[in-house]
């Protein structure tokens, strides 16, 4: 269960442990961030900035540095934008289409199932398209999610052309007057040029069939993934114009800090986090809760020590 303590409470704890702002303090801060898979460059830049800031303002006491740290961290995530939660874009006149992309095994199909459930709860009519025609059992997997959530799944046989499935999905969703079409795609590593071209083709079909679509291209990232997630974001961005991230498997011990670097370098926001394998386990992303989660271990040590 995730605790409800605010980020600033957590920071207070860290500060209580280190009264003095010295090299040890910065080193531990650096390690905490690296342990959460925040990008190495991002961490080094941030900690350097903090060092300079401490010097400039002649800060000796860690309490005084607290606000600076919080500011910088939230700044890295949010930039200049305000704190509005990132709602999914909807098409007001006609079918809304969301495309799910990502490398193998990250949680695309599961996230689609969860989102279908959520949208249905909100009273929307949803259709799903089984665009992964490659992986063994992928179509059957989405079909099970369709049964669980009571959502129709448009499918072709295994091995058929993914773009054709998606095309049929669009036609079927329109014919049934659906609000939202969720498109599954096969997992693909971003360095596989032919597979990325195939994805690009799927994207083009959607663009062509519904003006303004896809309304969201959601890149699913596994929170357990390290630095490679940056490369994933870059390449999928180029191929399929990613508009948001679903950070899956955040119910484990991994922190998924790499999304800070991705947001920092590419401005792609996180829209949802996955917190388990069941249909209800999808939550809207909360930057504050996330940032303080990065420090959870440090704080746990602290609590145990008490």
């Amino acid at each position: 269960k995730k605790t409800r303590t605010s980020f600033s409470d957590r920071m207070n704890n860290l500060m209580a442990r280190y009264r003095k702002v010295d090299e040890d303090f910065f080193e531990e801060l650096e390690e905490v961030l690296i342990a959460s898979d925040v990008g190495v460059n991002t961490v080094m830049d941030l900690v350097d900035e903090l060092r300079m800031e401490a010097k400039r303002q002649n800060i000796k006491d860690s309490i005084q540095l607290k606000d600076v740290i919080s500011e910088k961290l939230v700044e890295i995530y949010q930039g200049d934008e305000d704190e509005q939660p990132q709602k999914l874009k909807m098409n007001d006149d006609g079918l809304t289409i969301y495309l799910f992309v990502g490398v193998n095994g990250v949680g695309k199909t599961t996230s689609i199932g969860k989102l279908a459930y959520k949208l249905k709860q909100e009273g929307k009519k949803v259709v799903m398209a089984a665009g992964d025609t490659f992986r063994a059992g992928a179509i059957e997997q989405l079909q099970v999610w369709g049964e669980r959530t009571g959502v129709e799944v448009i499918r072709h046989n295994a091995g058929s052309d993914p773009a054709a499935v998606i095309y049929d999905g669009i036609k079927a969703a329109q014919a049934r007057g659906a609000d939202v079409l969720l498109c599954d795609t096969a997992g693909r590593l971003q360095n596989k040029v032919n597979l990325m071209n195939e994805l690009n083709k799927v994207h083009r079909v959607i663009e062509r069939e519904v003006p303004g679509a896809p309304h969201e291209v959601l890149l699913v990232l596994d929170a357990t993934t390290g630095q490679n997630a940056l490369a994933q974001a870059k390449t999928f961005q180029e191929t399929a114009n990613v508009s948001g991230i679903v950070l899956s498997k955040l119910d484990g011990t991994a922190k998924g800090g790499i999304v800070l670097a991705i947001r920092n370098e590419m401005k792609i926001p996180v829209k949802f986090v996955g917190l388990g394998e069941q249909m209800e386990d999808l939550q809207e992303f909360d930057p504050n809760a996330f940032v303080y989660g990065l420090f959870a271990d440090l704080m746990q040590d602290e609590e145990q020590a008490e």
Binding site: I34, A35, S36, D37, V103, G105, D222, T224, T225, G226, Q227, N228, A229, G252, T253, A254, K255, I258
Partner: peptide
Amino acid sequence: VDAMTGQDAVNV
């Protein structure tokens, strides 16, 4: 184990 795993690999 997924080769792309980050810092959490040790815990797992």
